[in-house]
Design a binder for these strands. Structure first.
Length: 798
DNA sequence: AGCCCTCGAGTTCT
DNA sequence: CTCGAGGGCT
């Protein structure tokens, strides 16, 4: 061996060793400066002697060039998700508080028939789960967890993390070793990174977790290399060419010997008491740990016992994550403001002094409505406890009573009686929780929200038309109604952009770089154009009719087939649509009764908005709409039909099939059919009523029109006809929406929540409470593979 | 008349 | 995700 080769080998050994001592043994032996010196010397030598290159030399940690996308990686053994146990709120006793963990332990004790089974216990780091693959001791690939089955190849980024060895230690490394673990950003490193970023005026990271996740998703590994990431191993994937230990805690020890860092807090514990003691011990240390955690994980230690317990769906029954309660923070209410929503609902929002709650700076929290404010008795200036409900949405939990000084306290909050945006009267309907602005589309806030709703993904899906642009369109009066969108020209948009830039005092981009700005406007116009060929149900939903969400819009579209039939439909007919009752029918009828709304629809049609899916009519609707259906509808809408019961109506409808025939038959005939005289009289009074008679006739005409257009609807007679199916968890081959659409083609009704009426639950990865509920109710559960099989049988495979 | 299920609507921050 | 309330079933 040449001198250079010897020196290179020596340097590589020293650098690897330094990394190992620092990250695995937690006993750094050389300074950062010395470390850097070694690396530089090695780099120089390798540059002079290209023949000594080695893909796993410590100098190769950063070197790869930016890629444009990450390759997909299939995990041969899926990366599991864990079931969670939360503390039961407001529990009086420990027994109650830790019920979920107790149940977990009890199940295991029963199954393995051991009074106090041993668990391997470890903190649950708040980072990003990854899988590392070593072949013959050399790092070959690393991937994110992804959906558990498929992840992204982030090898180049992982190589930059010094805690991840590029070469395993020991004489005889396994042929294949996949190690699972967590990439995280130590708190101190996170703080230091942000301090430096602030000095340099660069972007700071929101919290260590996002920092770790964002860093690994960088396309340029040189950026990842600047991020202070670390790694702890906690499990295995595929392993070949070596005998595994008999339990998990031995495996962790073995991984450490191979040079992989394992969290020093890992331990073993026996029985429920042991687990809870560990939970408390780590909980007390939580603030002084070098990294963020959100709970602890308990894993049954012995592998043979793990196998005995097995899996439910994709979560192991032998492990559970025990989460600490949501972090609460105290802050001050600086103001209470109201927002005006699409429907005019006024929502009070607490503006808070910025406070970091579990890694996210919270400045707003909804107070829902006047009742909620009264219940909490929140006032401006109060100290309040804030937490992120369900880990996402901030909420005010309570006012800190001890800090209230009654003398200095502001007045109780009162909802405004005029809309803060348009000044219209605010009304609160009897029995309703919400207060509403009565301004309708006169109110700029409602107009804006209507436009945002119209353009949103689930409605017309106009890409590029977001809140900011809508703000400007409304402010500069380019758009008053949704129909105006289709009349926008390129020049309009460019002129608007110029005015907005002037207003903001920004550099006039449109002037200096015309090309880019034009491109933006062209794309938007194109997206608006494309939305003209949306579907009928999307258009109906997009119109923003009160009470009409996606489901009802779908039902209406299927029942009537085209917009024209719906806009003319009488409330009597609407009532026959599934899930439409008096309130919803009234709301639809009221919307189309507004000349203003009809005009907007005319304009939309004139602008070429033409839903693609028109024409099909659900035969079930028309079937239920004979004379009986119409009379029943009138009754539900409050027509004066004293004493006329449903059975009487049915009896009449059996014998008489039209209004004309009813008139001809006359009262005596009804009495002969068994309808009591009084009710029969009230029905005939209705036929002479100025309000109801014409409505009934119009409705009857409309029904016969619809009858002429009945077609066989898709899905009729499919294998899932009449069955309610619930999708939960994430699927890998297709999205839930796509799966739902296909199931509907097979006749299924796809619902969002599990009940005893649910015929089938399809559980994807990381399915949660819905899956639990399905099991509780004994509902049939399928995994994704079973679903794909069914879809394939009907040529619906993705 | 009352209960159970769904659907609609609203919300935060990155 | 959560709440409230509309609709339908018993």
């Amino acid at each position: 061996m040449t001198d250079a080769a010897q020196r290179v080998a020596e340097l590589r050994r020293q650098i690897d060793d330094a990394n190992h001592r620092y990250h695995v043994l937690d006993e750094p032996t050389i300074t950062d400066a010395d470390y850097d010196r070694l690396v530089r010397e090695l780099e120089d030598l390798e540059a002079e002697h290209p023949e000594l290159a080695d893909p796993n030399s410590p100098t190769t940690r950063v070197g790869a060039t930016p890629s444009s996308a990450f390759e997909e990686v299939q995990h041969a053994i899926p990366m599991l998700s864990l079931n969670n146990a939360f503390e039961v709120e407001g529990a009086e006793s420990d027994e109650e508080r830790f019920r979920e963990v107790a149940d977990f332990v009890r199940r295991i004790v029963d199954e393995v028939e051991e009074a106090e089974p041993t668990f391997s216990v470890e903190p649950k780091l708040d980072g990003l789960a990854i899988s590392l693959r070593y072949e013959n001791g050399l790092f070959v690939r690393g991937a994110t967890r992804g959906d558990g089955a498929t992840g992204e190849d982030v090898s180049a980024n992982l190589r930059t993390i010094r805690a991840i060895p590029l070469r395993l230690r020991g004489e005889a490394p396994p042929a294949v070793l996949e190690v699972r673990g967590e990439v995280y950003m130590p708190r101190a490193a996170f703080e230091a990174f942000n301090a430096r970023a602030r000095e340099k005026g660069e972007r700071t990271l929101a919290n260590p977790r996002n920092g770790a996740a964002g860093s690994l998703r960088q396309l340029d590994p040189r950026i990842t290399a600047t991020r202070p990431l670390a790694f702890y191993a906690y499990g295995l994937g595929v392993v070949e060419g070596v005998e595994l230990p008999a339990n998990h805690s031995q495996t962790l020890r073995w991984l450490r010997e191979l040079g992989l860092p394992v969290c020093p807090e890992v331990d073993t514990a026996k029985g429920l008491d042991g687990l809870l003691a560990y939970y408390r011990r780590i909980g007390e240390k939580r603030d002084v740990l070098a990294y963020d955690i959100d709970g602890v994980v308990y894993k049954l230690d012995r592998y043979d016992q793990q196998r005995q317990l097995g899996f439910v769906s994709r979560a192991p029954r032998w492990a559970i994550a025990h989460k600490y309660p949501a972090q609460e923070q105290t802050t001050t209410v600086e103001a209470i403001e109201v927002q005006v929503g699409r429907t005019g609902a006024l929502t009070p929002v607490a503006r808070l002094a910025p406070v970091n709650v579990a890694g996210v700076v919270v400045t707003n929290a909804t107070l829902h409505n006047a009742d909620q404010i009264a219940r909490l008795d929140v006032r401006v200036g109060d100290h309040v406890v804030v937490r992120r409900a369900g880990d996402v949405i901030p909420e005010v939990v309570r006012v800190v009573a001890e800090q209230i000084d009654p003398a200095k306290r502001g007045p109780a909050y009162v909802m405004p009686d005029a809309c803060p945006v348009c000044g219209s009267a605010v009304v609160r309907e009897e029995g309703e929780v919400a207060s509403r602005c009565s301004g309708g589309l006169y109110c700029a806030a409602q107009r804006k929200q209507a436009l945002i709703h119209f353009a949103s993904r689930r409605a017309m899906d106009i890409e590029g038309l977001g809140e900011k642009i809508i703000d400007d369109l409304v402010e500069f009066d380019l758009v008053k109604s949704v129909a105006d969108l289709y009349r926008l020209s390129l020049d309009d948009l460019l002129a608007m952009k110029r005015r907005a830039e002037e207003r903001d005092g920004a550099v006039p981009e449109t002037v200096k770089a015309g090309k880019i700005a034009t491109r933006w406007a062209e794309n938007l116009i194109e997206a608006i154009e494309a939305s003209r060929r949306s579907t009928l149900e999307r258009l109906l939903f997009a119109l923003g009719i009160l009470q009409i969400g996606e489901e009802t819009a779908k039902a209406l579209a299927r029942s009537f087939g085209d917009l024209d039939a719906i806009r003319r439909a009488d409330a009597l007919i609407l009532l026959a649509v599934p899930d439409v009752g008096p309130k919803v029918a009234q709301s639809i009828a009221a919307f189309f009764a507004e000349a203003h709304n009809q005009q907007i629809i005319d304009e939309l049609l004139a602008a070429g908005v033409q839903p693609a899916s028109s024409g099909e009519v659900d035969p079930a609707l028309v079937k239920s709409l004979g004379l009986g259906g119409l009379i029943l509808g009138a009754k539900r809408l409050g027509a004066p039909l004293e004493g006329l019961g449903d059975t009487s109506i049915e009896r009449v409808a059996e014998q008489i099939d039209s209004l004309a025939a009813l008139r001809e038959a006359g009262e005596p005939r009804l009495v002969a059919l068994g309808v009591p005289a009084g009710p029969a009289a009230s029905l005939f009074a209705l036929l002479d009523d100025d309000h109801w008679a014409p409505r009934l006739e119009t409705a009857e005409r409309q029904v016969s029109e619809l009858r002429g257009r009945v077609r066989q609807t898709a899905g009729e007679g499919g294998p899932l006809t009449g069955k309610t199916v619930v999708l939960t968890g994430s699927l890998s081959a297709l999205t839930r929406d796509e799966a739902g659409a296909r199931l509907e083609q097979l006749g299924a009704k796809v619902s969002g929540s599990v009940s005893k009426k649910t015929a089938l639950v399809v559980a994807g990865e990381a399915a949660g409470s819905k899956l639990d509920k399905a099991r509780q109710l004994g509902v049939e559960v399928w995994d994704e593979a079973r679903l794909l099989q069914l879809l394939a049988e009907h040529d619906l495979a993705p």
